[in-house]
Amino acid sequence: MYAQALNAVLERLAAAARDAGRPVPRLLAVSKTHPATAVAEMASALRAAAASGTTVTAVAPGPAFGENYVQEALAKQQALTPGKTLEWHLIGHLQSNKAREAAAAFDWVQTVDRDKLVAALARHRPDGLPPLNVLVQVNIDDEAGKHGCTPGQVPALAVAIAAQPRLLLRGLMAIPAPHPDLERRREAFIRMKALFDALATQHPQVDTLSMGMSEDIELAVAEGATMVRVGTALFGRRD
Rank of each mutant, 00 (worst) to 15 (best):
E72H: 11
A160L: 11
A79G: 06
A99W: 00
Q95Y: 08
P151K: 09
A14E: 04
P165W: 05
I140V: 13
A45Y: 07
E143K: 09
S44D: 15
G83A: 09
S210F: 11
G92Y: 00
A36I: 03
G92L: 06
V118C: 14
G152Q: 15
A198P: 07
L219S: 11
A104K: 00
W88E: 08
R100M: 12
T55W: 01
N139R: 09
A122F: 02
P126Y: 10
A73V: 06
G128L: 06
N139A: 01
N139T: 10
V228L: 10
I161L: 12
A174V: 15
A29E: 01
N7M: 07
H93S: 06
R237H: 13
A120K: 13
L28C: 02
L219Y: 11
E187H: 12
A105E: 08
G83R: 05
V59A: 05
H147W: 13
Q164E: 14
R186H: 02
P204H: 03
D19P: 00
A45L: 06
H147T: 09
R26V: 12
Q164C: 10
A144N: 11
R123T: 14
L168V: 02
A40K: 15
L169Y: 00
N7E: 08
H34F: 09
A29F: 08
V159I: 13
L199D: 07
L94W: 07
N139Q: 04
V59F: 09
L6E: 03
A194N: 09
F196Y: 11
A50E: 12
R12K: 07
A105N: 09
H34T: 03
L209F: 10
H34I: 04
A160G: 10
F189P: 13
G62E: 00
E187L: 14
G83V: 02
A156M: 09
V112G: 05
I91L: 07
A58W: 03
I190N: 09
S31L: 10
E215L: 11
R184L: 14
A177Y: 15
F106G: 12
A75G: 12
L86N: 14
G231S: 13
V109N: 03
R125G: 12
S96N: 08
